[in-house]
Structure formats: structure tokens, C-alpha cells
Simulated assay, not measured.
Amino acid sequence: MIEKINFHINELNSMKKYPKELFCIGNKNLLNKRKVSIVGSRKPNLYAQKMTHLLSQGFAQRDMVVVSGAAIGVDSIAHKAAKAENTIAVVANGLDIRYPAINKKLIEEIEQNGLMLSSYKKGEKARNYSFVQRNEIVVSLGEVLIVTYADEKSGTLSSINYALKMGKKVYTIPHRLDESIGTQKLLEKGLIEPIYCIETFLNSFCSIEKKDDELTNYLKTHPKYEDAISKYASKIFELELDGTIIVENGLVKPIF
């Protein structure tokens, strides 16, 4: 059910002009939690996809809400990795329109468990200018902005400009020299900062209480995947699906 927000959202004071109206579907309590904005290209490379997933999941594990724009690519990866109940999706159209259509299922999940947000009334379709305002709202809501991939002429660069004007820190992940040229140039100018270690970066916001149990202690040793499966088969599969562990070079490495 679409509701009109009748209270002031302090984070949006950083916008050039506070929205005339705001509408939502879902859990408005997410607006009261700590939030981080994660955006990027609609066509990120595999490395950026993986890093977006790890960052978004890590923030959700630390009880922080991931804010993004529900677009394909980095946005949808961020929403999915954080899980619907830990995400706010800001869209550039009326909330009766689930756009882009390819993300209809994701948007429905966020409606049910997270929060959909828009400054546009029912029936209003997305237009160039509405995407720009959508980007400004996304940036305003987060403590910082993280851009995991952006081409040289990417629309994501407008989000970075908003963040810099608002005095917010902007972070990205290091790429090869011929990739994510948009963020590479800004890194070179010293306008944004690189993330070199996911766990260290996440813990700079809030560390998570680590479980002290037999399985957790075992995973800290980075066992061989085959050995871990033979010892904790169902648990390893469960943690792998959840993204709590990753397998690199045949070794199991915990993310928690």
C-alpha cells in the first residue's frame, strides 16, 4: 500500500531542495537506522559484482541499511546481497509502477520486507530529470557513498557529484587501469577514496560480534574445501549459499 510520508527525514536536508512530497511502501522504520548508499554501473564487471555483494552483505550483517536505486547491475546486486529487510530502494517513478520490469520480483520483495521510496505520485513514469532527483535522494540518505563501478560517461558520476557537494565521503574499489574509468579518474584526482580491505572498511563503521564456536574457529584456519565439506557438509553448503564464506584456490575463507 502506497503511503505519503508525513514526517521530516533529516538526512534529506543535505539535498539542494527538500522534496515537495515523498511516498513509500514498506517498513518506514528503516529510515531510523544507519544507512550507506551503494550505486554503480548497470554493467559492472565480475570483480565489481563480487565486491558489491560482499560490501552490501557486510553492512547488513552489521545492522546497517543499504540504500540504492533498484536499477539493474550494481543497484540490484546491492539490494539482493543486503536482503530485502535491510534495504531501501529509491525509484524515479510512481510506486505503482515496478520499473525496471526485469527487477519486478526484487521490487516486490522490498515492498514486503524493506522500503520503497519515491518523490513521484502514482502513475508518473521515469524520465531523465526524475533519475537525477532519484540519485540525489539515494546519496542524501547514506552516511557515505560507495561506487563499485562507473564508466567514464556513466550516469553514476552525477551521484558522486552530489555526494562531494554534500561533503560526504565517496569510496570505490581499485580496478585495472582500463576498467571503471569514471572512478579511476576521480581516484587520480584524490576526490574519492579506495577500499583496499573489505573487512577493515566495514569494521570502520561497526564491527560484528564474532561467534566463538567450533565451526567458526575451524573456518578461521582456512581449511581445504574438501576437508570442510567432509566435516561439516550441510553447514558449509548453507554458509556458502548465504555468502558467509567464499572459496578461493580450494580454501574456505570466512567473511564474518
Rank of each mutant, 00 (worst) to 15 (best):
D151G: 15
P44S: 06
Q112D: 15
E240S: 14
N45K: 04
V144C: 14
G123S: 09
K104I: 02
M1W: 10
I2A: 03
I245N: 01
K80V: 01
G40T: 12
S159Y: 10
K153E: 13
E21I: 08
I107W: 02
S118F: 08
G94N: 12
E240P: 03
I208E: 07
P223V: 00
Y129S: 08
K83T: 15
E111S: 11
E209H: 08
E109F: 00
K165T: 14
I102A: 01
I137R: 01
V132D: 00
D75K: 09
Y162A: 12
K153P: 04
G167S: 09
K105I: 07
C24V: 08
V67R: 01
M15R: 03
E199S: 14
K125N: 08
K16I: 07
I107T: 04
I229F: 13
Y120N: 05
L54W: 14
A82E: 07
H175T: 07
S207Q: 12
L30G: 06
T221V: 12
S158I: 05
V132F: 09
E85L: 11
V65H: 13
S37P: 04
S37Y: 04
H222T: 14
N6A: 14
Q49R: 11
Y120S: 04
T183G: 02
I9A: 04
D212L: 00
Y171P: 05
I2V: 09
L241G: 13
T156M: 11
L202Q: 08
K168H: 09
H79I: 03
N13G: 00
S159M: 08
L187A: 02
A92R: 06
Y129Q: 09
S76T: 15
I198T: 15
L219G: 01
K253R: 14
L219E: 00
I102L: 00
N161C: 10
Y162T: 10
E11D: 15
G142I: 05
N128R: 12
V39G: 05
R34I: 00
E111W: 08
Y47V: 11
K28D: 00
S230L: 14
T156D: 06
Y225V: 04
R34N: 11
S68D: 12
G123C: 05
E136G: 06
A48E: 10
D151C: 01
K189T: 11
N128S: 12
Q133D: 09
Y218A: 03
I72E: 15
I9Q: 04
N203C: 12
L241D: 14
I107P: 03
K253C: 13
A101H: 07
D213I: 05
I245G: 05
D96R: 02
M166K: 05
C206S: 14
L186G: 07
T172S: 06
S207D: 13
I229W: 06
Y162P: 03
N135K: 12
G69Q: 05
E109I: 01
L46D: 14
N135W: 06
P19Y: 13
L115R: 04
K220F: 14
S118Q: 05
M166T: 03
S234T: 02
F205L: 04
H79Q: 10
K220I: 10
E179D: 14
V66L: 03
L215P: 07
H8Q: 07
K210L: 11
S130L: 05
I137F: 02
I236S: 01
N103V: 10
I25Q: 11
I25G: 13
